[in-house]
């Protein structure tokens, strides 16, 4: 299980949408929506949560790249530049 702060913040955003999720049950490299029952409204709210938490824009054309939690964390890492999210 990943332990870096950015990943932990992603999980916190996810848990706001799906409170039943336990961090240790998630496999970062597996497709997220195969592990957690997220409909398109949940998915959009997850992205809106990330948008607010990390102050990044996520164009719709990038949605297809965000399949696993690793994808999401790596994407946010690149968008925010390393180290800038640790204060959050």
């Amino acid at each position: 299980m990943r332990t870096d702060p950015l990943y932990a913040q992603v999980i916190a955003v996810l848990q706001a949408i799906a409170p039943e999720v336990e961090a240790e049950d998630l496999v970062p490299g597996e497709p997220l929506r195969r592990q957690v029952d997220l409909d398109s409204m949940d998915w959009l709210n997850f992205l809106i949560g990330l948008h607010r938490a990390f102050q990044v824009d996520i164009p719709e054309s990038d949605y297809a790249r965000l399949v696993t939690l690793d994808d999401v964390a790596d994407y946010l890492q690149k968008k925010t530049g390393s180290g800038t999210t640790r204060s959050g």
Binding site: M41, L47, H51, D57, I58, E60, S61
Partner: peptide, 17 residues
Amino acid sequence: LETFNAGRPLPERLLMA
């Protein structure tokens, strides 16, 4: 929908539903 959403920030985008 793609065109509509492309120019908008996340909280203003529409779902196909």
